[in-house]
Design a protein around this nucleic acid. Structure first.
Lengths: 141, 141
DNA sequence: CTTTTTCCTATCGGGATAATAGGATTATAT
DNA sequence: ATATAATCCTATTATCCCGATAGGAAAAAG
């Protein structure tokens, strides 16, 4: 339940690799090789991350990918949204009129509450929390 | 992302129906009819809920299903686990040795943290929170 | 012993995911 | 210019899971 796609896991690995790399830049093949990800599949992942503004890409010789911001500015909620879409336990979380029991639906509020809980967690962690050594992420709050 | 299966949504509807029913008992066909769920598919759902001890079933004439406990005792975390399994963002949350970067893996802790956040939310809501009218669930805590 | 109900097993179609392939585009360097 | 090295784009495939369906077996009541 609530399992994360390989795409998202690959994406986080790629971002973490970039964050560890001098200048935060590398070429796709290099990331794929180092992280053991299918190069062609990784391409699509990096494209999504670039579209979301988390990564910058440059084509042609001497091209490659680099983090668009420092790791502390890359919020995990954005990463997840870029790769697997917004957190949406049920379809009616953001659009009404899907079922006939409209806005008084109790379970809808239940799922919206879950969405908030997840979004709050993901919104308060950054790539820096993932790559840094030491205590648990944001344990100091 | 993090979408809930139709199975779980159906299951919650069925539980809510039982909770609203006098004596908390009804037959499968009746629930399916009232909630607009495929009867045969609902069978499997109710079987799962019965196996998990959330619902009691009785076969034969005058048989049917009933809640095994009062709605306030049916924790949503159990419901979700019975229908879609435990919350497990990544496979390595409860078993090590899946990847080679064992227990020092930072992203593993990240996902475990997310699991805890979800489990805490689901563990603090019951069926009673879903069926009752009024304010948001557990807003009084 | 008939009826009513849950239980068990098997199958099927659709959709998404992960992966692969081939080429088109862009930019650098020589 | 031209070769090279990289991202970008589009399409295809294989596989798995889910939602749904079907047919019957088992059990309990009357």
């Amino acid at each position: 339940m609530f399992s994360v796609s390989a795409r998202t896991q690959y994406g986080i690995r790629a971002l973490a690799y970039l964050a560890r790399t001098p200048g935060w830049e590398a070429i796709g093949a290099q990331i794929a090789e180092a992280e053991g990800i299918s190069p062609k599949y990784l391409e699509g992942i990096l494209t999504r991350l670039a579209t979301a503004g988390l990564v910058r890409s440059e084509r042609g010789k001497n091209g490659g990918y680099r983090l668009a911001k420092p790791p502390g500015g890359i919020v995990m909620a954005e990463v997840v949204a870029a790769l697997d879409g917004e957190v949406r336990p049920v379809d009616c979380v953001d659009s009404l009129g899907i079922c006939d029991h409209d806005s008084s639906c109790r379970s809808r509020r239940f799922w919206i509450g879950l969405k908030f809980a997840i979004d709050e967690y993901l919104g308060n962690r950054t790539l820096a929390d993932i790559i840094e050594e030491g205590a648990d992420p944001v344990s100091t709050r």
